[in-house]
Amino acid sequence: MNTITNRQAICDALMKAAETDKDIVVTCSDSRGSASLAPFADTYPKQFVEMGIAEQNLVTVSAGMAACGKKVFAASPASFLSTRSYEQAKVDVAYSNTNVTLIGISGGVSYGALGMTHHSCQDIAAMAALPGMRVYLPSDRFQTTKLMEALLLDKDPAYVRVSRSATEDVYDENMEFTLNKANKILAGKEAVDATIITCGELVPYAVEAAKALAEEGISVDVIDMYCIKPLDEEAVLAAAEKSKVLITAEEHAPQGGLGSLVCQLICEKHPMRVVQRSLPDGHIISGNNKEIFAYYGLDDLGLAKTVKEALA
């Protein structure tokens, strides 16, 4: 069982890059601990800026630094970063095309029982709607590292959402990774019964579901669509060609997320049945993230059940 979180992977990638690049700056909103960025702050105090509990200021100040040549990584709970600072993300990061990467930590229902104030189930919809803003939800620590290495090389705005808890390993350090190309966990068949298109923390559950279904003779591909914007359209359309049904699964509200984006594409380019699974448009039960996923059918058992029902 993996215990290394994606936020730790982010910190490691930033620390490695900061060794040689003095323009890399991390900003936090009293969130260095929860972002696992305290080691960065301790090691590179001159490249770390604490903004206090002021997320709007966090984002705009980061943009100001970027306008003066800094490569800024602003880390704050995804709930506040994506909605309280939405105006700032829109104007100062996306519209102004500043070299700022927004890192939404403790994303989705990571904060479980803390309630809706701390959930970020609108962030994909919100951020994906901004012209110029890229949206990434990496699954495991290896993919998170590869994503960060790629983002460190470019200058464009991005929003990255990661979970608070460790995600089970899907890949290893030799994984193949091309920015904006989905990773695929394939059943190894020319045609499959279903493809689950998912992202972030749900990917390991989808992989488990596919394994369990294989034993029952049901073939399922999994597409790890960490790149929600720009969406890997080629991967979606290839899946549509070879699958009887597509399933989307996401830790997000039903509106405007991965499922919506997949459906937009499928409706126009390859009409077929898509079953969308997500968190509800409403109050989310109390519990840890695993309990919440299970309740809403987003864990391995729930996803397997959804596939069977879709094929029935």
């Binding site: 709007q56 200021n57 705009t60 943009a63 100001g64 630094m65 003066c68």
Partner: peptide, 8 residues
């Protein structure tokens, strides 16, 4: 706030 970032 942009000015604060530039000054920092």
């Amino acid at each position: 706030a942009l000015g604060v970032g530039m000054a920092i």
